[in-house]
């Protein structure tokens, strides 16, 4: 059954239809929020708030076919609200990240540990991006959205979205180089 049909069923009074929508979209919203905050607790909180808000506002959705974009827009706004609300705490955290960590040299002793540390650094590098660039990188790289979809969710021009992704990737490459993160770290067995 399509999302649009489930949306219409819910609006018609079938509450179970909304639980089916939650089942379909919970993982994607959780992944999105987790990559944005690098925190399981924050991701769970954002996911829960997203679906509560969707439950309350679903009757305001103009086009049921665009349920997914609409849901991501709610999640995106909640992430930004969370950043504003806890900006001071997160700012302190991001400041701490600026003391450049280094990926350990691969010596063959404990490749799994090296790989895990590199993953932590990847996440830190993502967190260092400006919010608007990080959002576009996550939507494109991990959620697999098209540029027009991202532009619609963020309510930004198409070229602005592409520009943010371009500068986001350039900034990430620079950070990866300075932290000595490269494909050898992940390819080592």
């Amino acid at each position: 059954m399509e999302d649009a049909q489930l949306v219409n069923d819910f609006l018609g009074g079938n509450h179970q239809a909304f639980n089916k929508l939650v089942g379909r979209w919970q993982d994607r919203i959780h992944h999105f929020a987790y990559r944005y905050f690098a925190s399981s607790d924050d991701a769970a909180e954002i996911t829960q708030k997203t679906f509560i808000k969707a439950y309350q506002k679903l009757d305001s959705l103009d086009d049921a076919q665009k349920f997914g974009s609409w849901l991501y827009r709610i999640a995106n706004n909640l992430c930004l609200d969370e950043l504003k609300r806890a900006g001071r705490k997160r700012g302190t955290s991001l400041e701490a990240l600026k003391t450049a960590p280094q990926a350990p040299a691969v010596s063959g002793a404990d490749s799994k540990l090296v790989r895990n540390e590199a993953i932590v650094l990847l996440h830190r590098a993502l967190l260092q991006l400006p919010n608007e660039q990080r959002m576009v990188v996550i939507m494109k790289e991990y959620e697999g959205m098209t540029f027009p979809e991202i532009a619609e969710i963020l309510d930004e021009p198409l070229n602005t979205v592409k520009s943010r992704l371009y500068y986001g990737l350039k900034a990430l490459k620079k950070t990866f180089d300075s932290w000595n993160i490269n494909k050898e770290v992940f390819n080592y067995e």
Binding site: N19, V22, Y34, L126
Partner: peptide, 19 residues
Amino acid sequence: AKSLLQHLPVESPKEQLVI
């Protein structure tokens, strides 16, 4: 840079939400 980002793992939610 794009290929390195692919190594970031996915974390799934611990419990299923039910409205």
